[in-house]
């Protein structure tokens, strides 16, 4: 299975909605790539500068109810075309979470106290987090400091990620099924 992880962006807020992830005015774009410059353009978070803070990141760590609001799949795409392929949060909006796994990208939820600990002990520009979906273990690294955190994903979600998303998963299994 593809390894997920790398430089981590910490977004210290709950209820970040899909309009903040990618504003509605970009929905007339017809390629995922075209969304790249606009990721988190309207994020309402003090001290956050999308022009500086996103570059090179592979992972987002955030608080509760990430991806709420409109069901637009443009939100995970905007992450994807910026190289961010994993989000770790206290919780997710249902459709956003499904969209992430449909795109073959893990959305991992962790209990509040562990999210608190990540923010308290590890937030900062040089933290890296890696996920092993087989063992259900995250490795968090910061300046020589290292810790392991357990997580769970469902069998189906793991299979979606292993296949590279719902398109690859379904195409390998269902051919031209229909009804």
């Amino acid at each position: 299975m593809h390894t997920f992880g790398g430089k981590t962006l910490f977004l210290d807020r709950s209820d970040i909605n899909t309009d903040e992830i990618i504003p509605a005015k970009y929905l007339t774009e017809i390629s995922k790539k075209a969304l790249q410059p606009y990721l988190l353009e309207d994020l309402n978070l003090e001290g956050f500068d999308p022009a500086k803070d996103i570059a090179g990141c592979r992972v987002i760590v955030t608080r509760a109810n990430f991806g709420c609001g409109s069901s637009r799949e443009h939100a995970p795409w905007a992450l994807e075309v910026n190289g961010i392929h994993m989000v770790i949060a206290q919780s997710f909006a249902r459709i956003f979470r499904q969209n992430m796994f449909n795109c073959g990208m893990p959305a991992i939820d962790l209990p509040e106290e562990i999210i608190d600990r990540l923010f308290n002990e590890f937030s900062g520009p040089d933290t890296e987090i890696y996920a092993d979906l087989e063992t259900g273990e995250l490795t968090v690294e910061k300046q020589g400091q290292r810790t392991k955190i357990a997580f769970t994903v469902s069998e189906f979600d793991r299979a979606l990620v292993a296949a590279g998303g719902w398109v690859e998963y379904a195409d390998a299994r269902y051919g031209t099924t229909g009804s």
Binding site: S71, G165, W166, V167, T176, G178
Partner: peptide, 18 residues
């Protein structure tokens, strides 16, 4: 049911949805 774009893709390609 209304679905996201990936679900639509799989619908077009394979005629299924989860």
């Amino acid at each position: 049911a209304g679905v996201g774009t990936t679900d639509l893709e799989v619908g077009i390609l394979n005629g299924v949805c989860a």
